[in-house]
Design a protein around this nucleic acid. Sequence first.
DNA 1: TAAACGGATTTTTTT
DNA 2: AATCCGTTTA
Length: 720
Amino acid sequence: MDVTALLDPLNDAQREAVGGPPGHTLVVAGAGSGKTRVLVHRIAWLIQAEGVSPFGILAVTFTNKAAGEMRERIEALVGLPATGMWVGTFHGLAHRLLRQHHAEADLPKNFQILDSADQQRLVKRVLQEQGLDESSWPVRQVQGFINARKDDGQRPADIDHRGDPYHRTLLELYRAYEEACRRAGVVDFAELLLRAWELWRDNPGILDHYRRRFRHILVDEFQDTNAIQYAWLRLLAGDSGTVFAVGDDDQSIYGWRGARVENIRRYSQEFPDVVTVRLEQNYRSTGHILGASNQLIARNPERLGKELWTETGHGEPVRIYDAFNENEEARFIGRRIQQWVEGGGRRDECAILYRSNALSRVLEEVLVHSGIPYRIHGGPRFFERAEIKDLLAYLRLVASRDDDPSFERVVNTPSRGIGERTVDNLRQIARERGLTLWATAWEAAGNGQLGARATKAIQRFLTTIEELEQAIDGLSLAEQVETARQHSGLADHYLQKEKGERGQARVDNLDELVSAARAFELDPGDVDTEDLLGAFLTHASLEAGEAQAAAGEDCVHLMTLHGAKGLEFPLVFIAGMEEGLFPHRMALEDGNRLEEERRLCYVGMTRAMSELYLTRAESRRLHGREGHTRPSRFLTELPEEHVESVRPGRAPSAPAAAPAPDTEVGEGVTLGQRVHHPTFGEGVIIDCEGDGPRARLHVNFDDAGLKWLVASHANLTPAG
DNA sequence: TAAACGGATTTTTTT
DNA sequence: AATCCGTTTA
């Protein structure tokens, strides 16, 4: 086998990383430097040049998408299916371990997974059981506390509340929540990781088995690992395994959910003889874009240090556009995209990025208005939709009767006369006797302690589930889901409850779930085919699915800056470059968070291949309030030599509301006219908004530059 | 049980 | 402005 072919297409740094000795390696990979390529080639190198068996390789990523891509590319490169290799997300791999060793992990065989919405409901339940007031103990905060502790590897017993009553209560809640999970046989996301780590910690035999097997561990996006993930890797590597870590400290944007950038540094200190390779040649962006990005991120202290460079030319400077308000900002972006398309570009080469989702609305309006197809990334995901989760809850109950959250979810959905009172009674009995809701319901239905009416209703529910289990036995997965769909009566329920399109959309989604099951059946991937339903339920929990099916149409992409990580587009806009919005006001107080905002800006900028626009609105209406804004500090941090302020000049297609030239726009001046202002001097009126005395004029002053002025206060006189 | 009202909230999100 | 959540009301 000619392994040099693996190295040939690489640059020197990439080659060093891929073909280096099979020891600990840290690859500091800048944006657009070919990091995935290095990871994939490294694996191929291990197999083909070092003679490592795929069975000995474990590669871990953060998203299913990344894992899928990696597997695909490895197989394409190696030329055969990489059987035996473990490639997956931290959560996916942890789940796999826990399934395999459920007894040692003290979990039921069919344990179900809670997503964060499920977890939130359960935390709320626990709060109510403890008789705590939700306004003093906000569910989200309690949930956040529990997750943060788990992300740090701490169980209630590991935490010292030091007599602080607030802390003590949180601890009690953590305990009670754990107990509720245990009873119901459910596990949340953070628990998957913590439990998998504990499994190894407490079972040396099992750990040893995996240590012997996985001598080669590769980690993508290392800067996003949290404490427990790091600990998990460390445990697995032991003294014999090698870790190949790829990451970029400058792209660490998930600190707020427990990611620890410092794991990169820690890794190179704690593991012996780590070879560090820097990938600094960028294959994505032009010189100007890179220059501006480099200098922005250089403002952050405490970096590992790295400066991207490119062989490509300077290209176009980064352009900054100051709009009068958010409408005008959106119109500018729309216009620019239209030009791009008229110039032969495709719409899907364009992306509009923003700090928070609230900004997408105006942009959408303008795009709709201009007839530009677009697609918003983010938003509710398929498997997270209420109707989908309802139907899955029926199936979960079939798979595991103890699953209390699922029981609660559908016991009265569709309504079958089991009210809050009845469920409350069940809950109370269950708690007193330490039983699950299902067991309690079963018993209560037998001894009639709930009253005739409720008993009957409960019996109906119990029968529904039991019959469903009978009915799906021996069926194919898709048929099972279809059967559950019918038995549940959810379709009629939603049609009746939500008239018109909304209800129908829900029903369509239920049908879609059947299709998803069919697709899963045909290609279940690397899972246990003995229990397809169980695997499908796991899939639904661990892989939330894209929000919208990828439309075939050529669409402009709209997404948050976080959502853009890992992507690239020829033409990129970052909208809302304003203090308080970006950097977000929640991050202004804290230096660390501010640095993270700056990294976020860096991530956004480095998405752009050939053109980058940073736009802002001088006045913005947000959450119903209109306010004046200040330009983002990030704008002022950009070096002049790479940046150009855009003068709209004669707009190629006039803004929607703008009158034709020569129309009087107020106070005896017209669009296009040369005017004089007492302070700013002479300039040309290039645009206007509104009419009458409140009209606002956009004037391009010779010296003072672009200004928006209110016509009635501007004191403009015709210049001549 | 569901509609209707009122109040608070409003960063980012994967698993 | 819009949405979500809890409470009140019919």
